[in-house]
Amino acid sequence: MIAKLIWKEWVEQRWKLALCCVLLAGFTAVGLRARVVEDEMVLILAGVGGCLLLPIFVGMDLLAAERAEGSLAALLALPVQPWKVLAVKLLVGVGVIVGYMLAACATAFLVAGEREVTSGRLITIFLGCACFGIVLLIWMTAFGARQPSEARAAVAGMAVLTVWLIALFVYKPIAGGELMDTWPVFFHPACILALIAERSTTRIAGAISVQLALAVVLFLWGARRLARAERGER
């Protein structure tokens, strides 16, 4: 049953993978070929687009589209626990994010090689952005689990980003000048990007562990919300 669910999600989401690959790899190729700005700037712009906007595009119809089309009830009526349905959807969403980041990374290798940015740095940029995008997808899915339409699910994603931004602005004066040296910053997903720039392995591992734990909690909370919402509708 799980394999069939994965197949169903793949069939529904693969056009998004293709579209995001064309968009991100195309942007990377054009930017690196044109050389209007430095290679690293092109990679960062591609990475930022891939970790801020595209996860919202991917996540907006994981659950909300099913609900809007009326097929979510049928899906949850299958002899599978709701958390497994959500896990499969998130797995495919994560696959899409990893897929288009890989496509952009490969394009960067093919077009620019190591002419300005080393391979390690290039991989680090896309890996960091992929991690950030996956975290955003999980948060967005958890908070948007009850949204009735794709537009409102997208708004939930935007709201998550806004709250992260506000949290940063509120915490920055509290932490003082050394923002990255304080432990609460590990709870903020942006620390993944900041610590990758620092290249501190132990701190990156710490940040990823905290973010992973948060993601598991959010996933369980999202699965619970989904099941409750569905029972409520029935």
Binding site: G26, A34, V36
Partner: peptide
């Protein structure tokens, strides 16, 4: 949307790119 973005980016890159 994607095709439009690629068209604008690509055509611009032909003029100003290497």
């Amino acid at each position: 949307l994607v095709i439009t973005a690629m068209l604008i980016l690509g055509a611009g890159a032909v003029q100003v790119g290497s």
